[in-house]
Amino acid sequence: MSGGTAAGLRAVETAPDRAAGYAGLATRVISFTIDAALITLVDIVIGVGASLILGLLHIPHELRTLLLALGTALFIVGSIAYFVVFWSTTGQSPGARVMQIRVLTTDGGRVTPKWAILRCVGVVLAALPLFAGFVRILFDSQRRGFQDRLAHTIVVDMPQPSLAQVSRAKKRAIYEASRLPPSADLD
């Protein structure tokens, strides 16, 4: 990749990387709904595939129950892994990416896997008493729920370039790089 292209892409990736505020309850609910839909979709595909395969075999009832329990455990582990991986790497799950919000530590750093797992546990604990743990988001000055208090995290608005903007900027950078004279790459 030429210097011009790299510079153009760098500008696209870093320019709007600043927080505008804290994410509220409605935004976080929509983000979680998108994530839940994605997880469910993947689970449905896997579940249907597994059922079709197991339907061809003669499996005893006890073993069938065991497999069901194993599948449920895999579903829970997979769901936790989904959030832990995204929160501890980019700070954004796909739903959060769509809603342009990001999970950070209270001092603005990246969440470690340990604290991401704790946050997952916090989400479950906050949901158990009729979602009472999320009500705090409505009254907290930093819009932090129970899970945020537990894991020392905040959820911030993160305006970012959209996929179309990134795509257009990439094409523009490539086009401009292709128009540069050959000597310009030597700089």
């Binding site: 994410a23 309850l25 935004t27 809603m99 819009r143 608005d157 903007q165």
Partner: peptide
């Protein structure tokens, strides 16, 4: 993008309204 922008704008308004 347009759809996402619209959803985001409405969700931010909903955040403030709910609070």
């Amino acid at each position: 993008d347009q759809l996402g922008d619209d959803v985001r704008m409405r969700s931010r308004k909903a955040d403030d309204w709910i609070e």
